[in-house]
Design a protein around this nucleic acid. Structure first.
Lengths: 242, 242
DNA sequence: CGGAGGCTTCGGCCCCGGCCGAAGCGTTAC
DNA sequence: GTAACGCTTCGGCCGGGGCCGAAGCCTCCG
């Protein structure tokens, strides 16, 4: 009965898709899009399933090479296996019908606003902040979208002056556009996006809000955004976050 | 019981993934990656399921906006909805474990060889041919991979001389790299890849083999590949296909 | 050394969804 | 007009898989 099927030539698309075809597992991946490592129980609590259920799902995702795991003592940390997986998840999210569920409570609204304002998306910056930076770079001709996204020569030099070093020689595209679902507009990803994000953290421009993927722009950050990107202070003042 | 779950914030990734999480549906999409429109019964026969089964799957894929359909008399033609979907399917295939099932028969081996040799991949050229063209463009500095894939100024001019017009002003990236599963190497996709493929067909460089997505390089095609890309004749002589 | 907490395994429940064949409808071909 | 053909709907079968709680293991902490 089961042998009726044709011998299944080509890659087993369905096997990968099946891993993401479950609300719980996809919620895990969406959470992990922040690029950090989560423990199994954090994820379980986050999506509201029993620990045993989370364990099984995580095993499946790790076996399928979508997640990488790291054991530390009694904790099991998982993160997205690589940038390819992150890109796949983004792709799926972009094609998915967005529910746009309105927040149920005041605190949820606050959390949502903070997330929309500035957050990490895998390894780069997203939200209003990410889009604003991307727009600023475009306006100053450091990025060029006309013939497919690319970094201009000026952009390359500008990065150097800023002291941002982009790892070279990898297969990873240096600039890539990432469409996120809160802004519905593309922002800068790829190796340059990641380097810029790293720089923003090490230079103290931004800091994580608690353990979420939302980030806050510091006062140094506001100064840097004004000086280096020409972005007005008000845009990222604490008052603007609410 | 079902209301225990958290209210499902964000896009419904799983809904899209579920559409591709079935061997039959994913086989449909893989077949449709050739960029052409297939009838429902063609697809049913192709993957070996009953017509009624195919109907239901196709409805699901159309409702999920992964496929577009077109009715003509008693036929129902379906094709991938757009380039985004094609890209998603490719992404999934790239992450999937490839079975590399050896062909079961001589004719199957022949078909497989023809496919590996030259074929369409959604709307651009793939297989040995696609990779060879991409490599030739790279070698002549018409494509630049160093800072993310981009078309160089020379490449832009070269396309114009060749008489290939690339539709401008769309959101689609002009050049994009596509990793296909037979070559395991990237080849040229995006708007330029599509335009080049269109040109190859209209200029009579290549022709479809029957109704498959495999294509044959014509004698004019071999001449053009030599003159314009510096590719040796032998590479695409009919004898080389086996 | 004992308790707490994180993770895992197992058994059992239940529902979802993929499959087919039969029957029916509409279009095309003769 | 009649026959063939493509597609669709429906009912029924069956397996896979997602969920939980209980019990157990291992690590960390006091």
């Amino acid at each position: 009965m089961s042998t009726r099927r044709t011998p299944a030539t080509g890659p087993d698309l369905a096997a990968v898709a099946k891993l993401l075809a479950d609300r719980t597992r996809s919620a895990f991946c969406l959470a992990l899009l922040d690029g950090r490592a989560w423990t199994a129980s954090e994820l379980a609590r986050h999506v509201g399933v029993a620990a045993s259920t989370a364990t099984e799902h995580l095993h499946a995702l790790v076996r399928g090479n979508l997640l990488a795991e790291e054991r530390q003592g009694r904790h099991r940390y998982v993160r997205l296996a690589d940038a390819h997986v992150a890109e796949l998840v983004e792709n799926l999210a972009a094609l998915a019908p967005d529910h746009r569920t309105p927040p149920r409570s005041l605190s949820a609204a606050g959390r949502k606003a903070a997330l929309a304002h500035a957050r990490t998306c895998y390894d780069h910056l997203a939200g209003t902040l990410g889009v604003a930076i991307t727009d600023a770079l475009t306006e100053r001709s450091l990025l060029d979208w006309d013939n497919g996204l690319r970094l201009t020569a000026e952009g390359d030099a500008w990065l150097g002056e800023l002291g941002v070093s982009v790892p070279a020689g990898t297969r990873r595209p240096s600039v890539r556009s990432c469409l996120d679902w809160t802004e519905r507009r593309p922002h800068l990803a790829g190796a340059v996006g990641a380097a810029l994000c790293r720089h923003a953290f090490t230079a103290g421009w931004v800091a994580r809000i608690g353990t979420t993927r939302a980030v806050a722009v510091t006062s140094e950050g506001r100064r840097a955004l004004r000086d280096h990107f020409g972005l007005p202070d008000e845009l990222f003042s604490p008052a603007a976050q609410r």
